[in-house]
């Protein structure tokens, strides 16, 4: 994975291949992250695509104050939050579609996370509060720092730190219920 900022600069200079690289590098991680908001991998995929479309069309300025990935995830989060706000009503999903969603989600998890332990933890994250799962996903799966995570989820450093602490406790207890021990926690 190269530096997304360089690829983005190339894209802004007119080289569409720069953006192809960005999509290739970040699409799965972004999709899994957005899935924490919508709990539907197909919708998360659409939102991921919307995120890239917004960047391609609007060509927003990347100041370089944060990493490119942080910036990209923050844009994705805004789009997901907008989506959740507009589609607050709970919709019923047919059982067949639900099984498709689950299968596709597992495919993405397997492809992106690869590590068996991580996959198990990621599955457990879905049982947590969405704020907890977001912060844990960003820190343990995307390797963002607390400061970067705070920037993405638009909270202060202290709030993020507290949120992370509570999220860890919640995850630990959830994993213990499932007789699973994850050393990184």
């Amino acid at each position: 994975m190269n530096n997304g900022a360089v690829s983005y600069r190339r894209f802004l200079e007119g080289d569409d291949d720069g953006f192809v690289e960005i999509i290739k590098d970040y699409k799965d991680g972004l999709m899994l992250y957005l899935n924490n908001y919508v709990q539907n991998i197909h919708i998360a995929e659409d939102l991921m695509e919307d995120t890239f479309v917004r960047i391609v069309v609007k060509k927003p300025h990347f100041s370089g104050k944060s990493s490119f990935k942080t910036w990209l995830y923050a844009i994705g989060r805004n789009i997901a939050v907008d989506y959740v706000r507009k589609n607050a009503k709970i919709s019923e999903i047919p059982a067949e579609e639900a099984s498709n969603i689950l299968r596709d989600e597992t495919d993405v998890e397997n492809e992106y996370l690869r590590d068996e332990h991580k996959i198990t933890v990621h599955k457990t994250l879905k049982k947590l509060n969405s704020d907890y799962s977001n912060v844990l996903y960003l820190i343990y799966f995307e390797n963002f720092s607390i400061a970067e995570t705070a920037e993405i989820i638009k909270k202060s450093y202290k709030q993020t730190e507290n949120l992370l602490y509570r999220a860890k406790q919640s995850l630990k207890s959830q994993l213990e219920k499932e007789d699973f021990v994850y050393e990184e926690l």
Binding site: I23, K24, K27, E49, F52, V56, V57, D104
Partner: peptide
């Protein structure tokens, strides 16, 4: 699920539509 090439095609197609 779309692979990255399909996502790329879709993104650029939507860009064309938007610009049109």
């Amino acid at each position: 699920m779309k692979n990255y090439k399909e996502v790329v095609d879709s993104v650029f197609e939507r860009r064309e539509q938007y610009e049109a």
